[in-house]
Design a protein around this nucleic acid. Structure first.
Lengths: 147, 147
DNA sequence: TCATGATATTAGAATACATCTAAAAATGGA
DNA sequence: TCCATTTTTAGATGTATTCTAATATCATGA
């Protein structure tokens, strides 16, 4: 399902960001980025917080939120909002999402050129990005339903 | 920009819903639906609350949230989540959205057949709906920036 | 290496949005 | 009109995020 050439957030990208902006490299920032870089489940802020605290107990929520916001601001992480929950997506390759209405799972869907070429009438606004969200029942939940 | 044939939530639809489910018709429910039916700005729950309170002072937030959730459950209203804010959309015609990154404005974008025919590889999941979100700078904000 | 100044982290308070609760009020059918 | 049921209400509670200000850490230059 996933190819290996996907562009992803890496610890190296954090180092670049920190240098660019005159920020400081900290173990917390590194741990948060490593957590994001290692997962494909689009974790929530709380999931990142808990993951980081396994390795760095005493990491505060404020630091997790600050770092996530820093990464979003730098466009190294995208945000997905669904059912009142924000999820963080470190996949930098243009792509879309499938969200399961039953279990809430969010999965990346490869973008195709065909769909990127939009014919939508946007009423004179400057369009900078396009995001498709597919909703439905994931293969697993569908199986559970029909047994 | 908007055609007149758009399918929209109407007070009549509320009446039908209430009859269908054995619920009761109340002035609060009617006022909330009238507020939604009359607007194209995709109001937040708080905006609905304030609008309804202009005509019905003492309407509680709980009632507004209950009614909005009832309408969402009945699929008479759709929800748009952006920047941590939920907005309510009474346009029932399949359509997409443009969101201005500067002012936060959400505008409906007509759906075209061409785009509905998706060629996306969805990895064996059952896709039930497709929602496109375009982001950028709206005509007004673009003008302000460039003067 | 160390001192220095700037930046980051922390715990807990504050805020914002949404839901829950239980008592009072309103609805609509008999 | 009466009555059972549903709805509404104000305020409490819950949940996610941001703010605060004191403390700790980082990285530069001496």
């Amino acid at each position: 399902m996933y190819s290996n050439i996907m562009i992803r957030l890496t610890p190296q990208k954090l180092t670049e960001l920190v240098a660019e902006r005159g920020l400081k490299m900290t173990p917390q920032r590194r741990a948060i980025v490593e957590c994001l870089a290692a997962t494909r489940v689009h974790p929530t802020a709380d999931e990142v917080f808990m993951d980081v605290n396994r390795r760095f107990p005493m990491t505060s929520r404020a630091t997790v939120y600050n770092t996530l916001n820093l990464l979003i601001d730098a466009e190294l992480v995208n945000i997905i909002e669904e059912s009142g929950v924000k999820r963080f997506d470190p996949n930098l390759e243009p792509h879309h999402h499938f969200i399961c209405s039953t279990c809430g799972m969010v999965e990346d869907v490869e973008a195709t050129d065909r769909l990127e070429t939009t014919m939508l009438n946007t009423g004179g606004h400057q369009v900078e990005s396009m995001q498709i969200t597919l909703r439905g029942t994931c293969a697993l939940c569908f199986e559970v339903k029909n047994d």
